[in-house]
């Protein structure tokens, strides 16, 4: 049972190195056909210093340094078999590339319920910066327990 006292709770800061092999694996998994995401020469021809991190992969890197199951069960008090991803937002400031080391600072931004408590929502917010302190993006992820 998630309660409002969780709002503002820090879930810690993690770092994650962006590996080009993982970017290629992700590109394969999503059926990406644009060579900019798999071929370094194509990426450079497009003006990028290295393979770019595609729009949604930032969320994958965010969860890399954590134990999402423990966060969901122990901190949020949710039952893993009953939760769904309700909403996801990305705000982009600068792009990230293979070779970057990204820092993810995540906290619980909101807790609320709908339908008289039948649906419970927990919203996590993450600020992402790179190795030079450049603000890369902000993520907002909303989970719901049915």
């Amino acid at each position: 049972m998630a309660d409002k006292s969780l709002i503002g709770r820090a879930l810690g800061t993690t770092t994650s190195a962006v590996e080009k092999g993982r970017l290629r694996f992700f590109a394969k998994a999503i059926g990406e056909t644009d060579p900019v995401y798999t071929d370094e020469e194509a990426a450079r021809a497009a003006g990028y210093p290295a393979l770019p991190v595609p729009p949604t992969f930032l969320l994958c890197l965010e969860s890399e340094g954590r134990d999402p199951q423990a966060i969901v069960e122990d901190i949020m008090g949710f039952d893993l078999g009953r939760i769904l991803h309700a909403e996801q937002e990305f705000s982009y400031h600068h792009m990230a590339f293979a070779g970057d080391v990204l820092t993810f600072d995540t906290r619980i931004a909101d807790v609320y319920e709908k339908k008289g408590g039948a649906l419970q929502f927990v919203v996590q917010q993450t600020r992402i910066t790179n190795q030079d302190g450049v603000h890369i993006a902000d993520l907002r992820s909303s989970l719901v327990q049915r």
Partner: peptide
């Protein structure tokens, strides 16, 4: 995964 469809939407945008 919901995020697989999200990644497809990302492809829609970057194409």
């Amino acid at each position: 995964h919901g995020m697989l469809s999200a990644a497809y939407l990302g492809r829609l945008l970057t194409s």
